[in-house]
Design a protein around this nucleic acid. Structure first.
Lengths: 162, 162
DNA sequence: TACATATATCCGTTGAAACAACTATCGTCT
DNA sequence: AGACGATAGTTGTTTCAACGGATATATGTA
């Protein structure tokens, strides 16, 4: 197969700092996330499930509609219904249809859910500290600021003229 | 249910910069990744599949064993077998058992695979530029450096004494 | 009221990731 | 040679995310 070798080789080895930043972002996020997954697994929680419970705790006793929970998730998951199904089966949250608008289902964390969070929270905090504290506060602040900045433009993006 | 309201409320609103950095990292990575997923979908590629093809292109005509591909993936996926299955079915890569060690299966990108990459690459580069170029080169460099730093300690972590 | 449209959630299906058990092959030691 | 353990992939199963269509309710309009 002549000519193939010429085509292959190290092409696009460096496609600009944006690409490199994207890949580093994915790589780092994946690595740290896996450790969080492993930590949460013994508690029967996925990162998303854990996230839902924390959102509901933050929402207080009035709870929050599914749609609102969905909007606040770290990793946007459109299928809150079945996610809540699993958590409700285990008694970690309660569901109730709102009277004045019977379309919305309000989710509320239960005492069991709160107890589980109390058990898990110290571990995740310790994990993240172990993962990132070596950067130091000032680097962490920079990192946080850069990550926030990185999210800005994609939200207000013009659709391509194409 | 008295007492419940006291337990709920905004607890753990700020558990330290490490937690905030972790959440920002996940949030940003997820947001950017989703756009990449949408971009790749019309080409029938997942981010991981795209990643495999680029790794194989970089490896050149000699190809790479499954295990080596797995190790170089951005998002570590232990199941390269079936990932390669799908790509091989579409003729994007070829598989061959190595003669001197018949345990290893060598993956090689095909001309079709290279052609697909040629089609996709400019789009992903453009996407990442659109996502991140507003940060500017110096901020991007900082971000890359911080993300690299963040990956260091987790690799050499002592198991907890616990 | 009747109708059209929008919204919030639900559910059926598909595809892929996670985990574990299994097979084949190799290297080494006796 | 034969046995043991290590290595490289493969395969089965379960679970979960993604996508789209379906349902129920609400809202606006004539």
């Amino acid at each position: 197969m002549p000519g193939l070798a010429d085509e292959i080789q190290q092409r696009v080895p460096f496609a600009g700092p944006e690409v490199e930043a994207f890949l580093n972002l994915q790589r780092t996020a994946d690595l740290l996330r896996r450790e969080a997954v492993d930590l949460l697994k013994p508690f029967g929680l996925s990162p998303t499930g854990y996230n839902v419970l924390r959102i509901l705790r933050g929402a207080g006793p009035e709870g929050l509609p599914c749609s609102e929970v969905s909007a606040r998730l770290v990793a946007h998951d459109p299928d809150v219904t079945r996610l809540a199904d699993r958590l409700a089966e285990r008694g970690l949250l309660a569901r109730e249809r709102r009277a004045r608008d019977r379309r919305v289902v309000v989710l509320r964390i239960t005492a069991d859910g709160l107890a589980l969070l109390d058990q898990v929270d110290p571990r995740t905090v310790a994990l993240h500290r172990r993962q990132l504290s070596h950067l130091g506060d000032s680097s962490l602040d920079s990192l946080i600021r850069l990550l926030e900045q990185a999210r800005v433009p994609t939200q207000t993006n013009q659709p391509e003229i194409s």
